[in-house]
Nucleic acid binder design. Structure first.
Lengths: 125, 125
DNA sequence: TTAATATATGGACATCCATATATCTAAATG
DNA sequence: CATTTAGATATATGGATGTCCATATATTAA
């Protein structure tokens, strides 16, 4: 069971918050996309994603060399509602808008490919 | 300026979250009311309220021996929206419902009095 | 003035947390 | 097999955080 205070503690870090809001908007992203969007080191991103996975805020899915993360499907309604409200209210702020921009601007491993497409695709930058 | 991650860190503690959601619903409460509603020690409540005041999430107002707290009027829209959404989604949970119950059940220093009424009123339990 | 009540704060303590560095696994490729 | 790349993890460290106890301050009552 997800305790509200525990949930908010997961949002209480800029790196995690940016990852979550990005995933809330885009649905599913791999670690390298998040690394590029947030312009942070891969170990740092990975560590925060692991924390969010352990806390059951995110779910991961491996596809070849890449690991894709998305909001956990079992998140309670109140948590989804808070994430939605936060994303709506913060999407205008430069910090978060910049993330989405760096994401769309880069032609890297988009999710939604078939297995064959993913296996044959170029590696992300 | 209120940083989103900083704001969520303020919500990342059960005591503070319960205080904030109660104040979000009730508008203004004094320390003794919160102490009674949450069934926690006065120093503990006072410390967390001081933190929320320092972080500009709460505003305090002294009236005689009592200090009343309320959501800070300068809170940005996105922060108010998140608090609203959280309160809507969590009001059903026993943890938070119990707080409101203990508050309504006690006939203690209600806010909204005039100065004269407050000065002449009985002390809170 | 003395007592009582409401609130705040200082100090001590244990715990948690974010970060950096380095290492490790697994997969893809040649 | 060797190499490269994506990603995870182990460890150490500095710093923040929550809680408790005791005490301090402020206001009101007697």
């Amino acid at each position: 069971m997800l305790l509200p205070a525990h949930f908010f503690k997961c949002l209480a870090d800029e790196t995690r918050l940016r990852c979550l809001l990005l995933l809330q908007r885009r649905g599913e992203l791999c670690v390298c996309e998040l690394t590029q969007a947030l312009q942070m080191s891969q170990p740092k991103i990975s560590r925060h994603l692991a924390l969010l996975r352990t806390c059951r805020l995110l779910q991961d899915r491996r596809q070849g060399a890449w690991v894709y993360y998305q909001l956990h499907p079992d998140l309670p309604d109140w948590a989804l509602a808070v994430l939605n409200t936060a994303a709506d209210g913060l999407v205008g702020q430069p910090m978060f808008a910049g993330d989405a921009g760096r994401l769309t601007g880069a032609a890297v491993c988009p999710s939604g490919w078939t297995d064959d497409e993913a296996l044959g695709a170029l590696k992300p930058a």
